[in-house]
Design a protein around this nucleic acid. Structure first.
Lengths: 258, 258
DNA sequence: AGCTGTGAATGACTTCACAGCA
DNA sequence: TGCTGTGAAGTCATTCACAGCT
């Protein structure tokens, strides 16, 4: 009854493994963003404490994160902004532009395709596909919406490694399958569904409604819990900095089951 | 030199505090989504293992999460789908619709305003404001873009508690200030900047480019690290389900600077 | 027999605190 | 003196494993 995952489980248990903790990876882009800002303002060096404040995290964490990939600062001085940007860019793989393709040209897909923020940070949208004949041929920024069948060609032509899923939930798995089949290795999924992919394919899920629900949960606790004792519990959502929020899950889906 | 936050720091250290761990809160909406799906298919009960599979997490975690707010299942049987939906809706504060307002009617703001997924899950966009005269008066779905000065009125009229920031980074802090001033208590920030708000205001940040950068980081490690020894480290992005990742902190923005 | 609820064990991430270089 | 780099401690989250209902 439960569709079993067509793919083996990750088993990421404990190999020689990941040098960089996941949590740190999520912060690197934030540091990068803050540093670009500092650089633009002509700042030459920055201390871990200052950077921490900008990124909204603890100074010790900034130092630990940066020390992960041998980016050394200068004791007594701090980090050299320009150098650190270079290092981060290298670590984040932003030395060249990443071609991306968007599946789904609805409201969200269109907005993403037209969104300047991607190009600005090293991601170029090289194609947008859809199945709806009404949308095919439409112009979005400098692109023309193509038929989903052209996906393979687009991916091959531009060596696309990242795909963005912006289709309704019912079509998300199919979109993921097509992307994976055409060779895409990482997916950013905006559809509110867990998608099943081989475990060497990276997935990040961003569910906008989930974000609002999390806010609503905390909101509902402000005055609520009147009965509940501990009252002044109004936690704000914390979290972090510009970071990502996302969250998600990844890939795993499990498998089998009755 | 670093502009200090105009608001006291949270100091959320260790009060009587939060009954529900943050990480769990981020998963609840995902369970909720899966349950709605099950219900739609006519499913009456579900075991923690089945639900875990759908949500992409471990079964023990599903049980632990659900036990947090006294939602009991039936041993030997599982959880009653309909009942659990009701409980989750209550916990998540989704018993009635939450009015939201969007600041910024650019590509993203417009897409969000027109996005059906919010209403579907209990969030009604009651207003969209902007400062650009060109955009004011534009229709988006059933709304008309209003002037940012109308924000107070909109928030008051609809008792808006949740605001969405969809403006360029430079305008984000101002948007946040206006929202907070008008009475909004929770913010979903799409601008790639850390915004500073009083600590009783909740903030969640979604930075789309950060999501891509995280994917790119992992992507860059596939074949890379050729020199790096431990080779077969291809971790997929993990994390969790629809959950949150995010992170962060709030606060600090800087200003000044040389 | 099946599956929940939960203490205990494990593991991941964060913060502390300080030695040591500039 | 100032600030980094990092072991050790602390905190929080996940998974295990099993007692105990149905």
């Amino acid at each position: 009854m439960w569709r079993e995952s067509r793919y083996r489980q990750a088993m990421v248990s404990d190999g020689p493994r990941r040098a960089v903790p996941d949590a740190a990876v999520a912060r690197l882009p934030v540091y990068h963003r803050c540093l670009l800002d500092l650089d633009a303002r002509g700042r030459e060096t920055v201390s871990s404490e200052q950077l921490a404040e900008l990124a909204g995290v603890n100074a010790a964490m900034v130092r630990k994160d940066l020390s992960l990939f041998g980016t050394y600062g200068t004791r007594g001085v701090g980090y050299h902004v320009a150098d650190l940007i270079v290092d981060l860019r290298r670590e984040l793989g932003l030395t060249s532009s990443w071609p991306c393709v968007i599946v789904g040209a609805g409201n969200l897909g269109s907005a993403l395709a037209a969104f300047g923020g991607f190009a600005e940070r090293g991601f170029e949208v090289v194609g947008v596909v859809d199945i709806d004949p009404q949308r095919i041929g439409q112009r979005i920024a400098s692109l023309v919406v193509a038929h989903q069948n052209d996906l393979d060609r687009i991916v091959a032509d531009h060596v696309v490694l990242i795909g963005v899923i912006a289709v309704p939930p019912g079509a998300a798995q199919d979109a993921a399958d097509r992307l994976v089949a055409s060779g895409v290795r990482s997916l950013l999924n905006f559809a509110p569904t867990v998608i099943d992919v081989p475990d060497d394919v990276g997935v990040r899920n961003v569910d906008l409604a989930v974000e609002l629900q999390i806010l609503a949960f905390h909101e509902g606790r402000r005055d609520a819990t009147p009965a509940d004792a501990v009252s002044p519990t109004d936690d704000e959502v914390e979290s972090l900095a510009g970071a990502a929020v996302g969250v998600a899950t990844d890939a795993l889906e499990e498998s089998a089951t009755a």
